[in-house]
């Protein structure tokens, strides 16, 4: 028991340091940094699928990689899926409903408007969370 505790407490300290560093990184509008967009907060509780600096820089490549894996090989683990980004990053509008990609408050639009990129993903993909299959089988599937 004591041996175990001896290992975990430095680990815990290390984790705390990492988390703090992440939290600092997650605040884009640092003092004096006027042009940084005010990124909407994600759902509380869990962290992103990768650390924030990595996400900021590489989310487009991640999404394209996942896209090809899913389209061509049928690999559907949810972790990096575009659909799942919306589970944590959906933003509610004034009316209490989730905003769609038409709104400039949408998570994916805030930075893109600043950076003047205009990916067309949401002309096909739903930009709000959800997605129960419409046709449900009463019997077991196989």
């Amino acid at each position: 028991m004591t041996g175990k505790r001896g290992i975990t407490s430095p680990l815990r300290t290390a984790i705390a340091v990492v988390v703090l560093a992440l939290a600092a990184g997650a605040t884009p509008a640092a003092a004096g940094d006027d042009i940084a967009p005010d990124v909407p907060e994600a759902r509380k509780g869990e962290h992103c699928v990768k650390p924030v600096p990595y996400m900021r820089r590489n989310h487009m490549d991640m999404l394209k990689h996942k896209r090809d894996k899913t389209m061509h090989k049928g690999q559907r683990k949810k972790k990096y899926s575009l659909k799942r980004c919306m589970d944590c990053h959906a933003v509610k509008g004034d009316d209490g409903d989730f905003v769609t990609a038409k709104s400039d408050k949408h998570f994916c639009n805030v930075c893109h408007d600043t950076a003047a990129v205009n990916p067309d993903c949401f002309s096909c993909h739903a930009s709000t969370p959800g997605g129960e299959l419409k046709v449900q089988s009463k019997e077991a599937s196989r």
Binding site: K83, M86, D120, S123, C124, H125, A126, T128, P129, G130, G131, L133, K134
Partner: peptide, 13 residues
């Protein structure tokens, strides 16, 4: 242009 697609079935113009 298509709106309100099913999240599991993206479709577009």
């Amino acid at each position: 242009a298509i709106h309100d697609q099913e999240p599991y079935m993206p479709r577009g113009k």
